[in-house]
Amino acid sequence: MLLHLAPWTLGLALVLSAVLPFAVKPWLTRWGIIDIPSDRSSHSRPVLRGMGLAVAIALVVTYAGALLTGLIPVDRSIALAVLAMTAAAAALGWAEDYRGVSIGVRLAVQGLIGALGTAALIVTLGIPAWWWPVGVAATVAYINIANFMDGINGVSGLHGAVVGLFYAWAGGVNDMPWLVCAGLALAGAFLGFLPWNLGRGTVFLGDVGSYVLGGAVAATAIGAFLSGVYVEYLLPPLLVYLADTAVTLVLRIRRGEVWYRPHRQHVYQRLTDAGLSHVQSALVVTAASVLVSVISVAGLRANGAGSALAGLAVVLVLVAYLVSPAVLTHARPRARSERS
């Protein structure tokens, strides 16, 4: 299934995402959608943001094309609900980039996206309604988590690629073409964006990009979970993002800070403060996500003791990631003193 669908779904999303910025960039310049650096930014000069519009178009067009051309022969109602949630999240992010939206309105619309999308999935699948608030909370949470974590070049592009490919594989294992196509479209769209985010003429995803990432991941995960896919296939690629956001949020609240204001206290940001480049920090996040995912799948296929060891290994990887800025900060002065 993966070999059959990948050339069309992954390939089309990647090509569209790589080419569309040529058309989108002049419009972003004309509209003045520019990110001005502040003391909390990870960049030092004004940069065009909102290029996630190209990524969103690539993702939505590719997934809609998979539906229209019959690449998704069954469970089409599930795919349609996931597509609608993804497109709605992208539209909200674009509204924030283009004109600005208050925090209250953003949260309300995110909740509405989760409420309507999850309700459609529940009705389609005929499952108990008690999962409805879980879907709403998951949608709101992950859209914001993806937005919080989109602070350095490459991190969101790599996250979309890893989660998308892992979900596509989960779809193949569980014989779900809609999930395969959703994962491949997600991976292709964010892989195609990477050259634009990492090259000389760097541009940013903006809220439209981080919102479509969070919305697509949440919608796909909710649809897959409600369809009976084991959580061990769905949660592991997200654990690093979840751990980074949760720990940072708790520490900020304990210090009496306003939790939703911009800051530079996430683990991936502190890694750059400790001396890593944007790409190096993004690769640390990605490597940890891949490692956690591989260990989790191995644990799913192991016996009782093997599963317990896999769980322990996942916890150790997450702890290692969370303390990595402190370790790197402590090690660098020592290395410099030894060289001198």
Rank of each mutant, 00 (worst) to 15 (best):
I143D: 01
S77C: 08
G93H: 14
A187I: 11
A141F: 14
T220E: 06
V60H: 03
G172S: 09
A54C: 02
V319Q: 09
F166N: 04
R40Y: 11
R334M: 15
A13Y: 00
S41I: 13
A310H: 02
V250T: 07
I122F: 06
A189G: 03
P177R: 10
L68Q: 15
G70Q: 07
A282F: 08
P237V: 15
D244V: 00
V290T: 09
A310V: 08
G201W: 12
G154R: 09
A170Y: 03
A218W: 00
L5N: 07
T286W: 01
T202E: 10
Q110T: 08
A185M: 14
L184D: 10
A305T: 11
L300P: 04
K25Y: 00
L125W: 04
V123K: 12
A288T: 07
G157Y: 10
I103L: 13
G111F: 07
V109A: 04
L2N: 01
G32N: 04
G256R: 02
T86V: 10
E232D: 04
A185P: 08
L226I: 13
G50I: 02
L312E: 08
L112Y: 14
V140A: 06
S307T: 15
H43R: 06
V327T: 08
G104Q: 08
A219P: 03
V74I: 15
V163Q: 05
T124R: 12
R252N: 02
L165N: 01
E96V: 15
V212C: 07
G306Y: 10
Y241H: 04
W259E: 02
G306N: 12
G70A: 06
S337N: 05
S296P: 02
N147S: 08
R40L: 13
V240S: 13
C181G: 07
L194S: 10
L271D: 00
Y233E: 01
T202V: 13
V327K: 03
G215C: 06
G114C: 12
P325R: 04
L291D: 04
W132S: 02
T245Q: 09
